[in-house]
Amino acid sequence: MRFGIPLEERIEPGNLGCQGCGGALSMRMVLKGLSDDTVAVIPACCWSIIDGPWPVHALQVPVFHTAFETAAIMATGIKAAKLQQGKDTTVMAWAGDGGTFDIGLQALSGAAERNEDIIYVCYDNEAYMNTGIQRSSSTPIGTWTTTTPDERPETRPKKNIMEIMAAHRIPYAATATPAYPDDLLAKVEIARDLRGTRFLHILSACPPGWKMGSGDAIAAMRAAVDSRVFPLYEVRDGLDVTITRWPEHEVDPEAYFAMQGRFRPLLDDPEELARVRRLIDRQWETLVARHREHHPEPAAG
């Protein structure tokens, strides 16, 4: 085995994820990095379905399903009870981008500001996929969705949820993607062993929503990292930035966009594409500068 991935599964086969579901894979990997003493909280999102219809479910940790905007606070409440009972169970909120960037942001901000002792994972597929591909504030510029049709594609940059979370000065916030499993697992393990609010932002491909073949899901997520569209990094205490993966072979963002049908409007608009390229460059430069602040010695890579 070339990966430092535990063989142990905390999910049973048989789930209702679509073929090639990045969200299903993200869950599988994250649970590998946590302990058996874990409770998951799932608000409305694809995973409300993926876990399976009553009376069965796929996950091998308790799952408390909750309302769309309540992942962080439901986890907080459960953790409070566990602590009151003298138990140190890990409570993980597991929400999509809609439940995190949009409707759940208030409760998430509240929990983060209070530094509640929870792990909050956002598996981000960059739109409301469960309801059939509507734009969220995580949807990137130039993207087609059913509510940003070709004639009027998404015009605003993806909300930078990491900066928002870092601004709460929580102990740990990190981006990850299952395309880089060792990086993801390492971050899960760091999060597991810290206390306070820990936030993992996991880019998770959605083949139907990204308009690509399911077999390309991993390749797309990998290209997102290698094109610096979705850099892998972590932020400690809201300030100390470490880039955890320096792309070895930079992929042209256009190649990343071209893998997915949802970016067709962007690819058809050279001016918008140029703006997006500048944005990607600027964001990366900003990130690198923050990394250098924290790591005065130039890092390898």
Binding site: T70, G77, Q84, A107, G110
Partner: peptide, 27 residues
């Protein structure tokens, strides 16, 4: 002997006590 969670909304207050109750506490 209790935990008091100072939430950011009533919606969250209700969610928090549901979660705590589900985990077995009187809320």
């Amino acid at each position: 002997d209790a935990r008091y969670i100072t939430v950011e909304s009533e919606h969250s207050a209700m969610a928090a006590v549901i979660g705590a109750s589900a985990a077995g506490c009187r809320t």
